[in-house]
């Protein structure tokens, strides 16, 4: 605790290369919806280094959007402190508004304006022009430039996303906030989008990005897994899977659904979740686990049975963490 405190003081006073792009300390946010109080954020803390791609990974209702709105000064937290680029989100909201780029979750641009008109509008309200910061968006904009007179409403999902990113980047923000940019977008566009983010990282922009897709965690430098307003873990993707702690087994048979029921029925089994064509199984104690699984398969007459020891992925970790947090 003491070490942490010291660290933060040091950042505040110096503002040198050690300074963080984003700091969040004990942020609490509650809403009252129809007389019931909803805890959106239950005192979360983290820090994002400059030039990092930091992922906020969690399902709907985890508090991701509230967090983004607090950091982009659109919402006031009930308590806690947060800074963006060294500025306080409450006191210095004007300074922050000048230096961040923001793509809200449901952001859909002006459907009746063309690509160029949309971009020109956002450039101008951020006090700049397309020409002035053309370098910044060049890589992305070139892909949609051939269609620049087309209305945003007539673009495909992937193209819309590229335009939205251009609009968020046009004023050379130092920190980019992307709230669920890949939700509802097909796998091809999602992949392209992440490639663009890695290009941007090379230009030194700090990126805070949220997503409900666990498989995107691996594309971030560091991630925070968040669930019901609580951060379950903060680490590099490798670090998170390294924290899993228990051997993980992947099993397969031709009768997958029955196999799962049989495995779950075994009192020795801690968890069994379907994962694509396999089930991922964790045991409470680790002796002779492989034999136990093979016995289950034999007793149930399962055909085509396979069992492998595997490395956990982020989703395995997320579910394990969910279980320890809400047993």
């Amino acid at each position: 605790m003491i070490a942490d405190k010291k660290n933060i003081d040091l950042i505040d006073s110096s503002g040198n290369k050690a300074a963080k792009a984003i700091t969040v300390e004990n942020i609490v946010k509650t809403y009252t919806v129809k007389k019931t109080v909803v805890d959106a954020l239950k005192g979360i803390s983290f820090a994002v280094e400059k030039g990092e791609i930091f992922g906020i990974i969690g399902p709907d209702g985890a508090g991701k959007t509230s967090l983004f709105r607090i950091l982009t000064t659109l919402l006031l937290a009930d308590s806690g402190k947060a800074t963006v680029d060294g500025y306080d989100v409450v006191k210095d909201y004007k300074a922050i508004r000048n230096r961040v780029g923001y793509m809200p979750g449901k952001f859909s641009l002006y459907q009746d304006l063309s690509i160029q008109e949309n971009l020109e509008f956002f450039a101008t309200i951020f006090n700049t022009s397309i020409e002035e910061n053309y370098d910044m968006i060049k890589e992305i904009y070139q892909q949609i430039e051939p269609f620049k007179t087309r209305k945003a409403g007539q673009l495909s999902g992937g193209m819309k996303q590229k335009l939205a990113l251009c609009c968020a980047l046009i004023h050379k923000p130092s920190v980019l906030f992307l709230d669920e940019p890949t939700t509802g977008v097909d796998a091809v566009s999602r992949k392209e989008f992440w490639e663009m983010l890695h290009q941007l990282k090379l230009q030194g922009i700090t990126i805070l990005v949220s997503t409900p897709y666990m498989d995107e965690a691996g594309l971030c430098d560091r991630v925070a897994l968040i669930q019901k307003g609580v951060i379950l873990s903060i680490n590099t993707p490798k670090g998170i899977t390294g924290e899993f702690g228990k051997p993980l087994w992947s099993v397969k048979a031709n009768e997958m659904f029955h196999l799962m029921n049989s495995i779950k029925a075994d009192p020795e089994v801690e968890s069994c979740y379907p994962f694509g064509q396999y089930h991922h199984v964790v045991f409470k104690s680790q002796e002779n686990v492989k034999e136990k699984l093979e016995r289950i398969a034999r007793e149930g007459n399962y055909t085509g049975f396979e069992v492998h020891a595997i490395e956990p992925n982020i989703e395995d970790c997320f579910m394990a963490l969910m279980n320890t947090h809400n047993p």
Binding site: R69, R97, M103, K106, F107, S108, I125, N127, A168
Partner: peptide
Amino acid sequence: EIGTMEVILVSPL
């Protein structure tokens, strides 16, 4: 509704 208000509010306008 379309989310542009959030971006405009975050702008210096």
